[in-house]
Amino acid sequence: MKKLLFLVLAGIVAATTAPALAQDTIKIGLMCPLTGSWAAEGKDMKQIVELLADQVNNEGGLLGKQVKVVIGDDGGDPRTAALAAQRMATRDVAAVVGTYGSSITEASQNIYASANIIQVANGSTAVRLTEKGLPYFFRTCPRDDEQGRVAVKTLLDSGYENIAILHDNTTYAKGLADEAKKLLDKEEDVNIVFFDALTPGEQDYGTILSKMKTKDPDVVFFTGYYPEAGLMLRQKMEKGWDVPFIGGDATNNPDLVKIAGNKAAEGFRFLSPPVPGDLPTKEAREFLDAYEARYQSTPGSIWAVLAGDGFRVIVEAIRQTESTDTQKMADYLHDEMEGFPGLTGDIAFNEKGDRIGDVYRVYRVDADGNFVLME
């Protein structure tokens, strides 16, 4: 009888204290690729957001509560992302950061929109993501139409006339390839001698490289991701084909050099917002110092740092509105956030949820595998 009474009392205590404990935290979700070919990006995203959450908690929390990061692994795959978003939407999160990869983000967009959850993407640059009129979608990264303009300027300034464009049929890569082609088609002295797609995740791109080589391009503009770019750089060197490659911003990851090797990667150029080491702000320097002290390394690419900016703007919206109400936070981000000191520079959003005023740069891989900003 005593045992039964104890169990009943324990159940009552648990039932009454569980909601109170839940109310002591503010949950912010993070969707990232912890598995799959983009796991390096996901690892950095997780480490950055957890570091920033700890800093918020060490400074007293948010609205008098501790922040808890809820992780969802999207696997770098649209189907996995949709399932991860469905689970995340049931976990009482105030907002969600992520993810990396436009097609992966697109698979989650409508799920979060239907659940009235703010989503702040960090590496999803496809134009159409913010052309849908979703009121709770934002991104801290720039758009591909801007990247397309910078890509074309880089190609023209380099004097290339016969250009091959290679993508991978993902939302991001195909969109960027189309943007570049549309602009290049207006140039009288430029010929698009090749426009096609590879299949991501393969281990041998000899066939597509040979196919491009027959078209004798002056340059290859590859709009896909760093694993495939690194592999092609190595394999074209093995074939003795010395055509220059220029990559889009999804090739900005140190693993590109690990895959290709320093010799094959040397001279490769890519477009990107500033890499972490080139970030000029006080906030960035303090953050990078804290990251290195905790993890004994620096973030691999800018996209993970942009996830940190996503977390920071969510925290700022909650602070300024003194609320986790989705509509109040969204109104603040759309209409009132201006010049917020992000890790990657000042942040504001337009009516579509796009970041205002970010600028692409051109980087070159040197002989030691370093990413060097080109003036």
Rank of each mutant, 00 (worst) to 15 (best):
Y136V: 04
R319F: 00
E161W: 01
L83P: 00
Y360D: 12
S297L: 03
E238H: 02
S108E: 12
D346F: 13
T344I: 03
R364E: 14
A330L: 03
Q147A: 12
Q235S: 07
K211L: 10
T16Y: 13
A307P: 08
A367S: 15
L209A: 06
K236F: 01
I246M: 15
N122H: 15
E41G: 13
L30N: 10
E375Q: 12
V69T: 05
D325M: 08
V315W: 01
K211Q: 06
D242V: 05
V190H: 11
E283F: 09
N253A: 15
L51H: 08
V193L: 09
G64H: 09
A304H: 00
D218W: 11
G247K: 03
A151F: 05
A229V: 11
M237W: 00
P244F: 05
D145P: 01
I12A: 14
G342Y: 01
Q109W: 00
K215C: 09
N253R: 02
V305D: 00
Y291D: 09
E292V: 03
K239T: 03
S37T: 13
L231G: 03
A40Y: 12
T35N: 12
E336L: 08
T321G: 11
E50F: 11
L333S: 11
L30Y: 11
D368S: 15
M31H: 02
A348K: 07
T17N: 00
E41K: 02
Y295G: 04
K282I: 10
W38K: 02
L209M: 13
C32V: 13
A10S: 15
Q86F: 01
P254Q: 15
E161M: 12
A40W: 01
W38M: 04
L343T: 02
A290I: 11
F349N: 09
A307T: 06
Y100M: 14
E238N: 09
K236R: 12
Y160H: 15
R285Q: 13
V275F: 08
A265G: 05
T344L: 03
T171K: 11
T321K: 14
V219L: 08
G248W: 02
D255A: 14
R319A: 05
I302T: 14
A121Q: 10
T207C: 00
Y205G: 08
V70L: 07
G76W: 05
L373S: 09
R79E: 14
G175K: 07
P274G: 00
R319T: 15
Y291T: 09
L5C: 03
T214A: 14
V152Q: 08
T90D: 07
A367W: 01
N57W: 14
T207G: 07
Y205F: 13
N57D: 07
T90M: 10
